[in-house]
Nucleic acid binder design. Structure first.
Length: 208
DNA sequence: GGCCAGGTGTAAA
DNA sequence: TTTACACATGGC
């Protein structure tokens, strides 16, 4: 069975650097993490473009914006009422901490994020890793599916997070690239239904 | 038309 | 402690 390190090297060779997270600012990364919850990134881009057009890519603008207006702008991402409220809560807390940079520098950042209603482990870890640049492994639905198919291991969020963190050097750049590569593999060949295993370039490493 | 997409919270079994 | 369901738009 391939080690996680070997899998990483193979994925990097196969797909190349993914250059995650897409976004021009820390705040854009943070709201993108909320907006992409259970929705394809394609939809998120529309919403971010809408916010950009309104010059609303700042905690202050999001906090002050009329709720109905915010909902309208992020509608393409689905669950827009919940997500608008989540963006408002996060923005309020960022302002309370006097800005994005100081918010991200809090020592208990992950716990702070998890205390926000609407931010669960994946969204929190995405923000910690991609905006905070602090090494924490992000686990998403693709990661769970890939681990199950490649390693026959079915675990909860924390189990799978530990599975990777215990087998790799604690390095933000590695975690960054690895998660992005797992998503790329997942999107192309490990979809929930109709997996294209025959076309998968690394199906020989998979027990599925 | 049906299923899925870079999840989360709540409530029942 | 697990499982089910609501939340909602857009692509294939």
């Amino acid at each position: 069975m391939v080690s996680t390190k070997e899998l990483f090297d193979i994925l990097l060779d196969t797909f190349g650097p993914q250059n995650w997270w897409p976004g021009d600012s820390k705040f854009e990364i943070m709201i993108g993490a909320i907006l992409t919850q259970n929705v394809s990134w394609r939809n998120v881009e529309k919403a971010i473009d809408n916010l950009k057009r309104e010059d609303a890519l700042s905690p202050d603008a999001v906090y002050k914006m009329d709720l109905e207006r915010l909902e309208e702008l992020i509608k393409p991402t689905g669950f827009y009422r919940q997500k608008a409220a989540r963006l408002k809560r996060l923005s309020k807390l960022i302002l309370k901490e006097r800005g994005v940079d100081s918010y991200l520098q809090q020592k208990d950042l992950r716990e702070q994020l998890l205390d926000i209603k609407g931010i669960g482990p994946e969204t929190a870890d995405s923000i910690v890793l991609y905006a905070g640049e602090i090494p924490t492994f992000v686990v998403d639905a693709y990661t769970k599916r890939i681990v199950e198919r490649f390693y026959g291991f079915k675990g909860n969020y924390e189990d799978i997070k530990e599975f990777f963190q215990k087998s790799l050097l604690k390095d933000a750049e590695t975690y960054n690239e690895f998660h992005a590569l797992l998503v790329e593999l997942g999107k192309k060949y490990c979809k929930k239904t109709g997996p294209r295993c025959g076309e998968c370039p690394i199906s020989h490493l998979c027990s599925y």
